Amino acid sequence: SFPETHGITFRIQISVKELLDTDVLLKLLFHLPVNYPSTLPDISVNSDQLTRAQCMDVKDKLLEQAKKHLSEPMVHDLILWIQQHLKYVIKQSATVCDEKTTLSKGTSTEDGIWMVLLHLDHMRAKAKYVKTVEKWALDLMLTGRLMFMGKIILILLQGDRSNIKEYLILQKTSKVDVDSSGKKCKEKMISVLCETKVQSQHKRFQTFEVKEFSTLDELQKEFETAGLKTLFSEFVPPLLK
């Protein structure tokens, strides 16, 4: 997401223990601008064990720390710092949702509802493709939307995390479309824009529906109604570029 031409980008994965006895795998991406360290690095944080909000908290705290080290190389210090302080950063933001711990507490599967937003490049055999997606969603008890707006095709799914994973496997391994010569082909141009746990402010979709929108505003309203305003503003506008 950063322009690769300027400065250096590198990825680091670190595993941090001591959090409800589970390991948290942090995937950190540092982008060092040309005039680093007199300019702060861009940092992006991902982790399957943390919610999106927690990842944002970690990022904010890292940037706060980075300011203290301005004009001296800091990446190494930042990594050491987050390894020691992750548990405090997260304690403040919310409890960690790790499948092992939620299941062992005997909480309902409602806690395990995930959401994924997918972007498809095109659909040549649209009618057949749509039917297939509807069937998979039904079979895997996933709800959500298949949305068309101009050239943009988005699939938003909610459901059990393992079913969402299963869906992604089907989507990538089945011959769902036809190529330019009309031969059946697998979906190669699909990207997962976002995968996250369904939060309390998100509305649960009751059904899986196919919807066509003629304007970006209509599409945005669909997301907003579902409490997904941030998801929309973060991932959809870049697709229009």
Score class of each variant (00 low, 15 high):
2 F>D: 15
3 P>L: 08
8 I>K: 10
11 R>V: 05
12 I>R: 05
13 Q>E: 14
25 L>A: 06
29 L>Q: 14
40 L>K: 02
43 I>N: 02
45 V>L: 00
50 L>G: 10
52 R>S: 02
55 C>M: 00
58 V>N: 02
60 D>R: 11
61 K>I: 11
63 L>G: 09
64 E>V: 10
68 K>M: 14
70 L>C: 13
72 E>Y: 12
73 P>Y: 02
74 M>I: 13
76 H>G: 08
78 L>C: 01
79 I>D: 01
84 Q>C: 01
85 H>Q: 12
86 L>E: 00
86 L>T: 01
88 Y>G: 03
90 I>D: 00
93 S>A: 12
93 S>N: 15
95 T>D: 15
96 V>I: 15
102 T>E: 10
106 G>I: 06
106 G>N: 09
108 S>I: 04
109 T>D: 15
110 E>N: 11
113 I>W: 05
114 W>C: 13
115 M>L: 06
116 V>K: 09
117 L>V: 14
122 H>S: 06
126 K>H: 03
128 K>G: 00
132 T>I: 12
137 A>F: 03
137 A>Y: 04
138 L>V: 09
138 L>D: 14
143 T>P: 15
145 R>E: 08
148 F>W: 01
150 G>I: 07
150 G>N: 14
157 L>G: 13
158 Q>F: 10
158 Q>I: 15
160 D>W: 08
163 N>T: 15
164 I>W: 02
171 Q>G: 08
175 K>V: 12
178 V>I: 13
179 D>W: 01
180 S>V: 11
182 G>W: 02
183 K>H: 04
185 C>Q: 03
187 E>N: 09
188 K>I: 03
190 I>F: 01
194 C>N: 09
195 E>K: 09
197 K>G: 15
200 S>W: 11
204 R>Y: 05
205 F>S: 15
206 Q>A: 14
206 Q>L: 14
208 F>V: 01
208 F>N: 05
209 E>F: 04
209 E>N: 11
211 K>A: 03
211 K>P: 03
212 E>Q: 02
216 L>Y: 02
216 L>S: 08
218 E>T: 05
219 L>H: 05
223 F>R: 00
225 T>M: 09
226 A>W: 02
229 K>L: 02
232 F>V: 11
233 S>H: 11
233 S>P: 02
233 S>E: 14
236 V>Q: 04
238 P>D: 04
239 L>H: 11
240 L>V: 10
241 K>C: 14
